[in-house]
Design a protein around this nucleic acid. Structure first.
Lengths: 344, 344
DNA sequence: TTGAAAGCGGTACCAA
DNA sequence: TTGGTACCGCTTTCAA
C-alpha cells in the first residue's frame, strides 16, 4: 500500500511544504480556505506525518518508556503489570504518545537509562518495581529525563514523582481485622522484602500486631517470590508448627490459591478453621475516597494507577519546572471468609 | 547530563562524520587503528546514535509494534499478555529492537494499522487476540507490513505467519481424561467464543465427548469473559441443575479459582466429589516435544511463545521474501485432583 | 498569507 | 582508507 509524504502532498496541492505543514498543525496564519483544502487532501490520501522525521525536527519523540527490571519481572509482569500498562496506554493513546517497553537486566539499569536518553527514544520514563533502596531515582534525576515511579523508594530523600497504593495502611488494617477477631497466630506470606511495596506491607503488619499487643514471631513471616507453590509450601509448614498459624495474610492472590489448596487438603474449612486475607494490587487499587467512573467498566483498577502515572508524566513533560507530584491511592482488601480462630 | 552527537564526536577526533560512522558500524574499509581510536572515544563519551536520525536515514525504525484490541483486553492483558511480552521483549533487546505497545479500540483497528504503517513507527507487528473471523490478516497483508499473529484466524485461507498453542488438542485430551474416569456430565467454562482460541477449545471439548459417545449438552457450556466471578456463578448454576455437572473444564485459572470457591462453599471436596481441570496458557505453553532450556529459570513458558513469535517476525523482516512460517506449540494441562464422579 | 532554505542527526554514494 | 555531500521527512526561521 502506498503512503504519501509531505513533499508529495504539497506538490499535489500546488502548495509549499511549509504551508501544508502549517495548515495541518493548526498555525493561525493559514487562510481558512487553504486549511480546508489541505485537510481534505490529507484526509483523502491518508497522510500521516512520519514520526521519526517529525521527532528529529522537533526534538521530541512523542514516546514514553516503561523500564522493567527483569530480575523482579516475576513480581512485576504478572498480573499487575498488564493492567497498569493498559491504563497508561489509554492515556498515551489519547495524547498521541507511543509506549515503549524495555526489559532490562538488573545490572544494566544504569546503562539502560543512559541509552534511552542518549538515543533519544523517549521523552519520559515510568519506573517499575522499585526496591526499598534504589539508586535509579538519583540517577534519573541527574539524567534530566522526566520520570514517574510506580511505587516508592524509601531510601530516597530528594523529592520525585510517584504513584503508589497505600500498602502499609492496607496491611495494618488487615492485621487489625484479624486481631479483632481474636487471632494471635497470624502468618504473613509476603513478596520479596527487598521490594519497596513488600517492605511497606511488612511494616503495616507489624504495626497491627503492636496495636494488639502481640509479639512479632519471625517464624510466622515468609518472604519469597509470590508463586502458588510458595503459598502451598508455606501454608503447610505454618500449619505444622507446634503453635500453628490460624490466619494467613497473603500478599498475592496467586499465592493465596496455594494456601487455599493446602488448607483444603487437610480437610479444614476456609473461614471456619483458617482465615485467609489476600491483598493483591490487581484487586485493590482505588482512588482516594471517591469514585473512579472512568474505569467502572473495566475489570481492574490497577488501570487507574497506570492512567494516573501516565498523566502525571505527561504533565511533567509539558511543564518540566513544576514541582514533583505524588498520588497515594488507598487499597481495598479482599476479606474473603474470615472468622475467629477455631477452638482447640 | 550531556550527550554527544556524531558531529561533535567526529570533530573531537579530527575525523569526518563519515569515517566515524563507518568505524562504529563495522564497515571493513576503516583502518584497524582508526576504528580503535573511534571506539574508545565513543565509549568514553558514551555516544549512542540518535534512533530517529538513524531511522530516518536508513528507512528502518528498529521497533516492533504489539497491537492489543481493547475490547478483548480483558481476555488478553491478564495474565497471558505480561509473560508473552516478557519473552518477546528479551528477544528484541538481544537484537537491538524496541517494543512499542498500542492499545486500540476495536473499531479503530484498520486505522491503527494504517497509521502505524504511515507514521513509520515500526518495522513489523505482532497481532494479539485474533477472533475466529478476523479481517486484520487480510488488511495487514496488503499493507505490506511484516506481521506475526499470536494465535490463529480460522476464517483466513491465505497463508500468514502465526505462533499458537494447540488449544484443540489440549481440550480434547482433557475431556477424554474425564470421560475415561467415568464422567458423563462435564461442564465447559470457556472464554468468549468469538475469540479463536476459545472456539478451538470448544471444538476439542466436543471431539472428546464424541469419542466417548456422549451427547453435547448446551446447558453444560458457558462462554464468557474469564473472571473469577464467572467461574463462581457458573459453577453454582451447574451444580444446581437437576442432572448436575460432576466435572469442570475451565479455560482460565482465574475462573477456576471461582469454581473452587463455589465447590468448597457447598462442603464438597475437589477431586473427590467434583473434578476440575484448568487450562491456562500461563501454565501451559511448552515447546513441541523437547526442552526449553532458555526458559527453565523463568516461571512461565508463555515467555517461550513470545520469544518464538518475536524471532519469527525478526526473521521475516530480514528476509521479506521467505514463506510464512508457523509454530504450533503443545499445551500441557494442569490436571489437579481428579477422580471419577461421586456415587449418587 | 505564502514560500525558500537551513537545519535536526545520522547514512551512503561518489571522489579523492 | 578517508572525506564531501546529498538526502531521509519534517519544522521553523526569515523574507517576500
Amino acid at each position: 500500500m502506498y503512503t504519501m509524504n509531505l513533499k508529495e502532498l504539497a506538490a499535489h496541492l500546488g502548495l509549499s511544504q511549509t504551508t501544508v505543514s502549517r495548515a495541518l498543525n493548526g498555525y493561525p496564519e493559514v487562510s481558512e480556505q487553504t486549511r480546508r483544502r489541505v485537510s481534505a487532501a490529507a484526509e483523502q490520501h491518508n497522510y500521516r506525518p512520519n514520526t521519526r522525521a517529525k521527532g528529529l525536527a522537533t526534538g521530541r519523540s512523542m514516546a514514553i518508556g516503561h523500564v522493567l527490571p527483569m530480575s523482579s519481572s516475576h513480581e512485576m509482569v504478572n498480573p499487575v503489570f498488564g493492567d497498569f500498562i493498559a491504563g497508561a496506554g489509554e492515556t498515551y493513546a489519547r495524547n498521541g504518545y507511543d509506549m515503549v517497553i524495555s526489559l532490562v537486566e538488573d545490572g544494566d539499569q544504569e546503562r539502560a537509562y543512559r541509552d534511552l536518553r542518549a538515543k533519544g527514544t523517549v521523552d519520559g520514563i515510568i519506573v517499575h518495581g522499585p526496591k526499598s533502596t534504589d539508586h535509579r531515582i538519583a540517577q534519573l534525576s541527574d539524567l534530566g529525563l522526566p520520570f514517574v515511579v510506580h511505587g516508592r523508594v524509601s531510601s530516597e530523600n530528594a523529592p520525585y514523582s510517584w504513584v503508589d497504593v497505600n500498602n502499609r495502611r492496607a496491611f495494618h488494617r488487615a492485621t487489625s481485622f484479624l486481631t479483632d477477631l481474636g487471632h494471635t497466630r497470624i502468618a504473613l506470606l509476603n513478596g520479596l522484602e527487598s521490594m519497596d511495596f513488600a517492605a511497606r506491607r511488612r511494616a503495616g503488619y507489624e504495626a497491627g500486631l503492636t496495636d494488639a499487643g502481640l509479639p512479632l514471631d519471625l517464624d510466622l513471616c515468609r518472604s519469597e517470590e509470590m508463586t502458588e507453590q510458595f503459598g502451598y509450601d508455606a501454608a503447610n509448614t505454618l500449619m505444622d508448627m507446634p503453635d500453628p498459624a490460624t490466619a494467613f495474610l497473603v500478599s498475592s492472590i496467586i499465592s493465596a490459591v496455594g494456601v487455599r489448596r493446602a488448607v483444603q487438603e487437610r480437610g479444614l474449612a476456609l473461614g471456619r478453621d483458617i482465615s485467609v486475607i489476600t491483598h493483591d494490587d490487581e484487586l485493590s487499587y482505588l482512588q482516594n475516597g471517591s469514585d473512579i467512573p472512568q474505569f467502572t467498566a473495566t475489570r481492574s483498577s490497577v488501570r487507574y494507577a497506570g492512567a494516573q502515572a501516565a498523566q502525571l508524566l505527561l504533565d511533567k513533560i509539558r511543564n518540566p519546572l513544576s514541582a514533583p507530584m505524588n498520588k497515594l491511592l488507598e487499597a481495598q482488601l479482599v476479606l474473603g471468609q474470615s472468622t475467629g480462630p477455631a477452638a482447640k
